[in-house]
Amino acid sequence: MEFTLLGAAAIAGGAAYLMLWWEARHGNAARCTGNLWEIGVVSAVAGIFIGRIIAMLVDGTNPIAHPADIILVRSGVSTAGASIGAAAVFLWQSRKEPVYTADGLSAAALAGLAGWSAGCLVRGTCLGTASDLPWALSQAGSTVTRHPVGIYGAVLFGIAALAIAWWKAYRRPPAGMPASLAVVAAAAIRLAIEPFRPSLSGGPVWFYSASLLIGIVGIVWFGVVVPRRAR
C-alpha cells in the first residue's frame, strides 16, 4: 500500500514522457539548451523534496533532527512550497533559455499533472465530497456517492495538455505564451476542483489564485507587450 505513491508518480512520469516524445517529433524544444525530460524530472523531484521540508517545518518537525521523515511524502507536501521550489530549480537549470525551455515543457508538465491525478486509481484516492450527480461513485461498502475528483483532474489536465501541444505544433504561438497558458490552465483547474477535494483546510486556494494571476500577467506580457515592442 505504501508504494502506491510510486505507482502514481510512474504514471505521471510516463504521461509527461509520452508528451515530450510526441512533441519532439513536431519540432518541440528546438531552441532549448538542455534535455527537457531531465530538467522536468529534476525540477519535480526537487520540488517534492522542498515541499516536504516546508510541510515538516509548518507542522513543527525539525528536518535536520529527523531527516528520515523527509522521505515520508505521504504525510504531506506543501503544494505552494513544492511548486515554488520546482520553479526555482527549473529556472536555475534553464537559465540560458528559460522562456523557450518553459514553453518546451509546458504541455508535458500538464500531461504529468494529468497522470498524477489519474494515479488516484492506483492510490485509491479518486473520491471527493458527497454528490448526487449521475456519475458520482461510492467506495466499497458505502452508501455515500461522491465526486470522482481525481478523474476530473485527470480529464481537465489532459485536455489542457493536448490543447497546448496542438497549439505549439500547428499554430506557432509567440514565445512565452504556451508556458503562461499552462500556468493559467493548471491554476484554474486546481481552483475549480479544490472544493470537491476532501481536506482539512480547504486547500491552498491563495496559491492557486496567485498562480492564475501570474499566468495572466505572462499572457499579457508575452502576447501583447513583447510583440508590440518588437514592432
Binding site: 517529433r25 528546438a30 532549448c32 538542455g34 527537457l36 525530460w37 531531465e38 524530472v41
Partner: peptide, 25 residues
C-alpha cells in the same frame, strides 16, 4: 519557432548520476 527545426535529442535520463545538464553540462 516550433516547426521546421530539428528536435532536441532525448537521451536516457542521467538523474541518478547527478549529471543534470547534458548539453553543456
Amino acid at each position: 519557432m516550433w516547426g521546421g527545426q530539428p528536435a532536441a535529442p532525448h537521451s536516457f535520463p542521467h538523474i541518478l548520476l547527478l549529471t543534470v545538464c547534458p548539453v553543456d553540462g
